[in-house]
Nucleic acid binder design. Structure first.
Lengths: 225, 225
DNA sequence: CTGCGAATTATACGATTGAACAATAAATCA
DNA sequence: TGATTTATTGTTCAATCGTATAATTCGCAG
């Protein structure tokens, strides 16, 4: 046969960019159609490459999945942390409020992100690596929350702080899941208000009114090129 | 060829029993290995039949999945409701406490049940029927919880009750998820205690000590044959 | 400008999936 | 008992999955 003659032209890219592109493509597909939509072929098409390339950068599809899951979970914790650290260190109540509120607006609470979380979570039941990532990111988030709680102006009591951190974390998780998966069942800002009221009651703290109206979204920040 | 000669012997069963068996088999497989383990062939093998029979009772595998999901969700609400209704109607605090506590012991809070929930939940993102089941069972559970909250001895305030029901439901969900998926991260009874303390603080109610020690498990109740 | 290594494409393979369908045996009823 | 219904089996099919691998082409060193 006279040979196919046509072969898709391509550009060589740095390893880091290709890995990031593939992770982003996998996340986008999972957000849209769940884990079963993130096939090797679909990921490659979304990233603008051919399926074979995935195995050039990841030993298996499983490895790419692990990288994507880790990325999703860590970026949520970092987003909340960044919000809290934007406030003065000598106002622990405001810092805690900012940390909480950040979980209930984009880019953290969106149907897409909640969908990705739910899709990946069920993989943790059989895949030990996924389970370890879940455990590490969960405990990491909770430890940050416990630090903020421990910084409140009141007598120290580590055991109480631990229990309260678990409770606050659970309340945030539950509200985040339902607010993200049933967005039409709640008014704008309602979930955020319920979270602040509930945590305020559990901790015996009254958050300032400014914490309730904060709807700033930092998701369009550009990172240095 | 001289014909296979051997054909597996079988018994005819009632439609109801066969449907229940297939649903139970699907749930067991999902609990063990996630949705991807619940293939038509595996479900049939677990139920003791051959794959073709599934399509005799369910128009598609999807229909069987819907039935199984609905069953899991509704049975959890009913288990909590049964616990609350076992107490006198004139003690709304105790009834609420029993409802809450029931969520944090078997048969509701087990790694298997949480795994089934997580596995099925991610299907709701693309499947409208699964989403509708999620929404209906979530709102149904929350309404029961709101009824118990509204029955507390205090001035009526439906808007407040709604917000508190959402918060309490979220706290229960979050604790149930983490307690079921990371059982080794919590001491026995710790999650239940944290839930009662947290909800008590949010509602301004003090639950009796008896609510904390209740670890009765009604899962081995036999239903009438 | 030329050759070489590596990034990328293209194709193929074996396994598994949900579904479809004809064959058969168990139960029912006359 | 004998005929009939239908619950159940066994097999096949097309589609799709992750993976493997050979064939190419890009980009850089000399």
């Amino acid at each position: 046969m006279p040979a196919s003659a046509l072969r898709r032209p391509y550009r060589r890219e740095g390893e880091e960019k290709r890995r990031d592109d593939l992770i982003a493509a996998a996340m986008a597909l999972v957000a849209e159609g769940g884990t079963e939509a993130a096939t090797v072929r679909a990921i490659a098409a979304r990233a603008g490459v051919t399926p074979g390339l995935i195995r050039h950068y990841f030993q298996s599809k499983e490895e790419l999945t692990h990288a994507a899951y880790r990325h999703v979970m860590e970026s949520m914790t970092q987003e909340a942390l960044r919000a809290s650290e934007s406030l003065p260190e000598d106002d622990p109540v405001a810092r805690l409020a900012a940390f909480i509120a950040a979980n209930f607006r984009p880019p953290v609470m969106t149907p897409a992100v909640v969908g990705v979380w739910a899709s990946y979570m069920h993989l943790g039941r059989n895949d030990p690596v996924m389970h370890a990532i879940h455990e590490a990111t969960y405990l990491g988030y909770r430890d940050r929350l416990q630090d903020l709680i421990a910084a409140l102006p009141r007598p120290a009591d580590p055991a109480r702080d631990r229990r309260q951190a678990i409770a606050c974390n659970a309340l945030i998780d539950g509200l985040w899941i339902e607010g993200g998966s049933l967005p039409n069942s709640f008014a704008t800002g309602e979930v955020q208000r319920i979270a602040l009221d509930g945590i305020g009651a559990m901790l015996g703290v009254r958050f300032p009114a400014s914490a309730y109206s904060d709807t700033s979204d930092t998701s369009d920040r550009k990172t240095a090129p």
